Computed example of a mutant assay.
Amino acid sequence: MYLIKNLSPIMKRHHVIQVSDLHLSEIRAYNQHGWESCLSYIAHENPDIVVSTGDHALDDPDCLEDHIFARSQLDRITVPWSAVPGNHDIGDLNPNPYQGQHVNHERIERYLGVFGTDRWTRELGTWRLIGLNAFLLGSNVQREEEQYDWLREIVSRDRTRPLAIFLHKPLCVERLDEDSSPNICVVPEGRSRLLAALGDANLRLIASGHNHHYRSFVIGSIAMVWAPSTAQILRMPRSFRALLKPGVVHYWLDDAGGIEFTLAEPPGIVPNDITDLLARYGAMRTVPHLPLESLGEDAGRLLMA
């Protein structure tokens, strides 16, 4: 459990659950059991909103079927939800992206056709929640400028409101002025332009996913939280210390700007370690089929609920 400013016992609190890196597919349903556990847990916890920070599709941003299936699974959430894209949804801004798939207009349009939007804002009491497309940050394309203009307009409405930003990639590993780590984080140009667009806004939280680890640290008054995957883990060397386990992240936000957050492991969730699968097949898009209907009665029953 982590606190940023003590929460007042009489102050209204707002409950957010973040899920990330679902990596779902109907024909390669390796991560479905983890998602079923998360769905049951969310229904029990009944938060005000669920935010999914990307990589909804299994592996390939060009697989429309996986996008459609992932959207159908998010629609099973029993409370309001919002989502932003990950690199496995629209490609990456990394100069050397996974499987050579760069973010581009076609991939973004495919995502928008299924999910409707790649940016949004929601209000919870005094809090403003903003979802951003991390793969426009530093891209130097027109759509990036549109996102900055939209963000500046949203923030200018009231700069005193506590602000939480949700996006797929973290802004940094340790410091806001660090060198580039494009496989892990937003590129430095995008980070600096985002911070400039925010200006003196009351930024309290940046919540991300992407790295399949749970990690948190504080920069000034900003809580930086990395959510793990809802199922999938990959054993590999990392330059940072973090917890390698699946789960969801709870946030409790009070109207004075206080934050409390913690990792939760839904009952029944089991890590899906894909390390050996990737070593053998190279990518999840090429592993053997594991159809959803083959997962057994529990998954089928929950799916039909």
Rank of each mutant, 00 (worst) to 15 (best):
L39S: 04
E144F: 04
D276I: 07
V173Q: 14
S216H: 14
E144N: 06
S208M: 07
L74S: 06
I77Y: 00
E260A: 15
E65T: 09
Q32H: 14
R157C: 10
A134D: 01
Y2A: 14
P9D: 15
G282T: 04
T53F: 10
G86R: 03
P47L: 00
Y41E: 04
D60E: 13
W226S: 14
S37F: 06
W127M: 04
S52C: 15
F261S: 13
W252S: 15
A223W: 00
L74Q: 08
P97H: 07
H105M: 01
V270R: 11
L234G: 03
L253H: 06
R285L: 11
F69P: 07
E109I: 06
Y41K: 02
Y30Q: 09
M304Y: 13
D55K: 01
G100E: 04
D66F: 00
A207L: 08
N272K: 01
K12I: 12
P267R: 02
L253K: 06
N133Q: 09
P288E: 08
E36C: 12
Y41W: 13
L244E: 12
S181A: 15
G91H: 01
S37R: 02
N272L: 05
L39C: 10
H289M: 07
D89S: 00
V187N: 13
T275Y: 05
G296F: 08
R76Q: 12
A242V: 08
L39Y: 04
P97Q: 04
A279M: 11
P85T: 06
R301G: 15
I90R: 01
L203W: 12
H105N: 11
A196N: 13
H213C: 14
Q32W: 13
H168S: 08
S192W: 01
I259V: 15
A57L: 04
Y251S: 05
I130G: 07
L295E: 02
R13T: 15
L278N: 10
A57M: 07
A196M: 09
G131A: 12
Q101Y: 04
I269A: 09
G131R: 03
E189W: 00
S37Y: 05
D298N: 07
W127V: 03
V16N: 02
L22D: 00
N104L: 03
G296A: 11
Q232T: 12
L64W: 04
A223Q: 01
H213V: 15
W252E: 13
V50L: 05
L124K: 08
E65P: 00
Q99V: 05
E109G: 03
I154T: 10
L205R: 02
V79K: 02
P237G: 09
Y41G: 01
L244C: 11
H15G: 02
L151T: 10
V103T: 10
P85D: 07
D92P: 00
V270Y: 11
I154Y: 03
I130Y: 09
R191L: 06
L277G: 10
